[in-house]
Amino acid sequence: MEPKHPHDRREGWELFRQLNRYMNEQFAPQDEVLASIRRSMEENGLPSISVSPATGKLLTMLVAISGAKNVLEIGALGGYSGVCLARGLGPDGMLTSLELVADYARLAKQNLEKAGFGGQVVYMVGPALESLEELVAQGSRFDFFFIDADKENYVHYLDYCLRLANPGAIIAADNTMAGSGIGTPRALGRRGEIMRQFNETVARHPALDALFLPIGDGVTVARVKAAKEER
């Protein structure tokens, strides 16, 4: 099969962007709570890299559909995805959110409190791998995971998610398309290659059922199999 011409790839990428705009506008219009979080991030100098509105809607739906009671978020930023995750929880559900930067965690906590979820979220500040090791030592267990942090450690985060997962838990990871890099990893250099390898790991993992969804910048979703399903 001949590789696509760069012009063809650009056309395909533009079509993908149009489809995502349609999804955002028709299925996930941004409400005032989420819009205010984006404004707070801009005012506080945080990077504008929150999940897309459609991705946020997907997270809410996945948490709600799965009936998750304990959710772990790796990468809080300003709290946009945290609110989306918390919206899927019932009143007795809890969100544990890991964030490297203390100022980001403080802003995220403020935004979750304003959204009415202050009593349902706990923040752990510091390197995520250290926080994950602490959670393992505590014997913590989770029903839902959302990975949206430094891409170089995605595979390591996946390993920890599996160690912390209840059977049937859902693992979702953002930015797994890496722009237009999937299928042509050299187009985006190292990041594209990292995401390609991560997706291959998830797709082939014997403990996971997985699928890639072309929403936002790509979301890879997997379900942790029960032990009997792995045989």
Rank of each mutant, 00 (worst) to 15 (best):
L158D: 07
G179M: 11
G179F: 14
G181I: 05
R191K: 13
A178M: 10
L211K: 09
A207P: 03
H205G: 04
S180Q: 12
L208I: 04
L211I: 15
R196G: 07
M195L: 08
H205K: 11
L162V: 11
T201A: 00
D209G: 01
R190A: 07
V155R: 14
M177K: 10
V155T: 11
R204W: 08
D174C: 00
L188Y: 11
R204F: 10
L211P: 00
V155P: 02
L188G: 09
T184M: 09
L208P: 03
V155Y: 04
D174Q: 07
N175F: 05
A172F: 06
Y160S: 04
N166S: 15
L162I: 05
R196E: 15
D159C: 02
G168R: 10
H205L: 01
C161W: 14
G192R: 08
M195V: 13
R204Y: 12
I170G: 07
Y160P: 01
L162A: 01
A165W: 11
D209T: 12
L158E: 08
D209F: 06
V155L: 03
I170A: 00
Y157Q: 01
G168Y: 12
L188K: 13
L188A: 11
P167R: 12
G179H: 14
F212K: 06
G168Q: 13
A173W: 01
D209Y: 11
G192L: 13
I171V: 14
V155Q: 11
A173L: 04
R163C: 02
S180H: 13
R190E: 15
G183A: 02
P206N: 13
R163M: 11
A169L: 05
A169F: 09
R191M: 12
R196T: 15
P206K: 15
P206H: 15
A169S: 15
E200C: 06
D159G: 04
G181D: 14
G179N: 14
M195P: 00
D159E: 15
P167A: 06
L211G: 04
A203G: 02
I194A: 10
A172T: 08
P185R: 15
G192F: 13
T176C: 06
L162N: 09
G189P: 04
P185T: 15
M177D: 01
Q197V: 03
G183T: 14
L158N: 09
L188S: 10
R186S: 13
T176G: 00
T184G: 05
E200M: 03
A210G: 11
P167G: 08
N175Y: 02
V155N: 05
L162K: 09
A173M: 01
I170Q: 11
L158K: 05
C161L: 02
L213D: 04
L162H: 10
L164S: 03
L211Q: 11
A203P: 04
S180K: 14
Q197A: 14
I171E: 03
N199F: 03
A178P: 03
R204P: 00
S180W: 15
